[in-house]
Design a protein around this nucleic acid. Structure first.
Lengths: 133, 133
DNA sequence: CTAAATGCAAAGCATTTGCAAATAT
DNA sequence: ATATTTGCAAATGCTTTGCATTTAG
């Protein structure tokens, strides 16, 4: 499905700025506000941070984009996709997605806490292959 | 060990304000800046947010306090203790600590990502026993 | 006595809002 | 044609800084 269709499916008007935000998010996978801004400026020299904030907010409201909170770093944003976890390099900040099975751990957490749990946010930290050389 | 001794062990001067911050952190387990501020005002009507920020920052530098980033909420702070995970109620925001075994999951994450991992941050979300009634 | 902490005010960032003009549908 | 989006400027909110005074050790 094209990015245009993805936006239309969420009832988001397809503006050039918005489309480029989706392109950049898709290309980088995860990106923080500042880097998103920098990347958009090459194609849209007059784009404003307000536009980026507004777009990220409406996209989050429509559940098309989500924020990932990372320890000791600024939050990054990603296109909402199948539930997954994150691994972050504490040296170069590279982030990758991983699909791990959290069922057993969530069960453990449920019985230990007495909570009814339906979600989990997991971020592993360490060194990426490049930085651990 | 008393809170006074805990501060001294970290080379932190024992001021009344600082001691009360530790008392409040210990009492609540996890608290965000605003609520910490409100709680301190009863005992120190003229305490300033700057003092609280400065204290949390130096305490974090000394690894005596740490920040916990929670999805969809303001960060909370806690006294640094043995590694553990968190469970948060998405209705009343209550947070509890749990000790779960993350070894297997971390191994899985390592092999999937190719990263050398030495830390993980896990936050489960759901309803606390009270809110799920 | 010295270095650090406090509290105030000001400064510095980050994010949101209001609004006129432009644009998507 | 209408409702939404954009980009600017201003406003708001959050966190840090500078500094004179106070306090802990």
């Amino acid at each position: 499905m094209s990015h245009i269709e993805q936006l239309q499916n969420k009832n988001l008007k397809v503006t050039p700025q918005r489309l480029e935000i989706v392109d950049v998010l898709t290309h980088f996978g995860h990106i923080n506000i500042d880097n998103l801004y920098k990347n958009l400026q090459s194609k849209f020299p007059t784009i404003s941070l307000a536009t980026i904030y507004k777009n990220l907010n409406t996209m989050q409201d429509k559940d098309f984009v989500c924020e990932v909170k990372i320890p000791h770093q600024k939050s990054v944003y990603e296109i909402t996709k199948k539930k997954h976890s994150h691994v972050v390099c504490s040296n170069c900040n590279e982030i990758v997605d991983i699909e791990i099975t959290t069922t057993k751990l969530t069960e453990e957490a449920k019985s230990l806490s007495g909570y009814q749990l339906d979600d989990s946010s997991i971020v592993f930290s360490g060194l990426c292959p490049e930085c651990s050389k």
